[in-house]
Structures are given as structure tokens and as C-alpha cells.
Computed example of a mutant assay.
Amino acid sequence: MTAMTTTAHRRKRCIVLIGCIAMIAGATPGIDGAALAGCLTLPEQGEAVVAAIEDGRTLRLQDGREIRLAGIEIDPSRQAAAKATLASLARERRVTLRGDDDAPDRYGRQPAFVFAEAGTQSLQLRLLDAGEALVGLGIADGDCRAELLAAEATARVAQRGLWADPAALKNAGNPGDIMSRVGRFTVIEGRILSVRGTGGTIYLNFGRRWTRDFAVTISRRILGSFEAAGIAPKSLEKKRIRVRGWVERRSGPQIRIREVGQIEMPGAR
């Protein structure tokens, strides 16, 4: 493999990093302005017919397999609406499964990006565009993640689905409201007041009361991924960011960073 091919491959497969996402006229552009291919370029895992919709992101196929829509999260408050939307898109339809890994999860469900009736938009993309889902974690393909984030942003601006509620995007300065989201996947926006390191953890603090205010934590064990992205956590101080993940209860509400793509710069869109 040539050096040029290797560089292009790494660029394609990397996690979307802070500030590299944009949205123009509903398309997801690349660095040179050309539209990215998105999730459609992921390896194909086969075709099947959908027999039933189990929940807002789970399909049961006629061959008995359960398919979990990869790369998205459904808020419990939107479960019924997401299930109805998914049923309208996929029930009794022939679908194509795509993804890097078809190994089932611990519950026996196969994660995949799913395309109905030879469509070019994944079911994930359509749920996000309807405002019935949030972009999740574990999306290794940069173009795919950028496409999904653009669809989520479109729904947020249009106030569709869950985004019809102004409180859907949580304010980092309101720790009490965030605390009500413990155990739930949440998108939070705010300005980082300070960046501090203690032991093996780096804290992005959004308030002065460290025992009560919201914070984002980064393990020093994953700093290599930040360095590969050319990002020093200290450089985020005083910056406004958007972060997504599961809210945990520590001394105050926290989100633990597992991958660089959990952090976005809203102004980069």
C-alpha cells in the first residue's frame, strides 16, 4: 500500500474530529466541497425482509435475526414515536445491511446500518432527520458520522420531533436539569470554564462548584486519540462545545468521554 493510499484510508476511517463537520443545503460536504458518500459505502452484510419492529431501533427479520440500528440512540420519551416512524419505513420491506462488523452484541442483536428497498439513505439517517433519534457513539467511519450529524442538525434547526422541545439540548450551566438525565444518553452544550487534571483523569469543568456543576471527564488512557487529532484538552478552556454521551452521577453530573467524536464545536457547522 502506498503512503498516499494509507493517508487517504486513515482520513476516511478516522472518527470525525472537533470542527470538521459542516452542512450545506442538506448535503454533507467533504473538505474540498464535494458531497461525502456517507454510510452507503460501508461493507454490505446481506439482504433480508423485515418481519417486525421490536422498538425504535430494533428490527426482527424473517430469518429470525434481530438487527440493532447502529450509531444512534433513542430517548425513552421518544420510543413510541420512533417505533412508529421505523415501522412506516421498514415493516415488511426488503432491507440491505451494512457495517464493518456483523458480530452480534451480548444480547444476540446484530448491529448494522440499514437501507430499505435499495434506498440511498439509511433508516438511521431518516430517523435523525425526523428528530426521533440522536447520533450515538462507535461510528468509526468519518463520512458516515458526518452524514448522521448533519441530519441531526437539520432536525434540530427545524425543531422536528424531540427538538420541538427547547430543553432537548441541555444547558451545561443547569446541573440540576442535567442530573435528571442520569443514565440517559444526552446532548449538552455550554462553555468550558476550566480544564484540570487529577491523577489519571482530565476534567472539563463548566462551573466553579466542582462538587455540583456539570463536568466532562477524559481518561489519560485515551489522550492518544486527542493527540492524533491535534487537540490538547487544555486548548478547550473557555471554548463553547457540544458533548454527547450517558450522564453519570459523581459529585455532580458528568459525561465520560470514550471517543473524540463525542465533542463538537457548534460554531464549526
Results as ranks from 00 to 15, higher is better:
Cys20Ala: 14
Ala112Gly: 04
Glu237Gln: 15
Asp102Ala: 15
Ala8Gln: 05
Lys12Tyr: 06
Gly19Ser: 11
Val216Gly: 00
Ser251Ile: 04
Ala146Tyr: 03
Ile67Ser: 06
Ala228Trp: 10
Thr198Gln: 09
Ala103His: 09
Gly176Val: 04
Leu223Tyr: 07
Ser219Leu: 02
Arg94Glu: 12
Leu89Glu: 06
Trp246Ile: 14
Asp129Leu: 15
Thr28Trp: 06
Glu264Leu: 11
Ser88Ala: 12
Gln159Phe: 12
Val135Phe: 00
Arg244Pro: 09
Glu264Ile: 00
Phe185Val: 12
Asp177Leu: 13
Cys20Gln: 09
Asp165Cys: 06
Ala116Glu: 10
Gly33Val: 06
His9Tyr: 13
Leu149Gln: 03
Glu264Arg: 12
Gly71Ile: 03
Gln62Asn: 14
Leu59His: 07
Ala81Val: 10
Met4Ile: 14
Tyr203Gln: 02
Gln124Arg: 07
Ile21Leu: 08
Arg94Tyr: 02
Cys144Val: 07
Ala172Ile: 09
Arg209Phe: 07
Thr217Arg: 11
Thr186Ser: 12
Ala25Cys: 04
Leu125Ile: 09
Gly183Pro: 01
Gln79Asn: 10
Lys238Asp: 05
Val157Ile: 14
Ala81Asn: 01
Lys83Ile: 03
Gly176Pro: 06
Trp210Ser: 02
Ser219His: 11
Asp101Arg: 08
Leu193Asp: 08
Ala130Val: 01
Glu189Thr: 13
Glu117Trp: 06
Lys234Trp: 05
Lys170Asn: 05
Thr186Lys: 00
Asn171Gly: 04
Ala168Tyr: 00
Ile192Tyr: 01
Leu193Met: 08
Gln159Glu: 13
Leu123His: 01
Gly119Ala: 15
Met265Phe: 08
Gly207Leu: 05
Ile67Glu: 09
Ser88Asp: 13
Leu127Glu: 05
Arg57Gln: 12
Ile231Asp: 00
Arg60Thr: 14
Leu86Val: 08
Leu137Ile: 06
Ala48Gly: 10
Leu40Ile: 14
Leu193Trp: 01
Ser180Glu: 10
Val182Lys: 06
Arg212Met: 08
Asp165Ala: 13
Phe115Pro: 10
Arg250Gly: 03
Glu248Asp: 11
Val50Lys: 07
Arg209Pro: 00
Gly197Tyr: 09
Ile255Ala: 01
Ile21Ala: 12
Phe185Ser: 05
Ile18Trp: 02
Leu89Ile: 01
Ile231Glu: 10
Lys238Asn: 12
Ala158Ser: 06
Ala146Arg: 12
Leu86Gln: 08
Ala268Thr: 11
Leu236Tyr: 00
Leu137Phe: 02
Pro166Ser: 04
Ile222His: 01
Glu259Arg: 11
Ile18Cys: 00
Arg93His: 14
Ala8Val: 11
Arg250Lys: 15
Ala164Val: 03
Asp129Tyr: 03
Gly99Thr: 12
Ser88Trp: 07
Met23Gln: 13
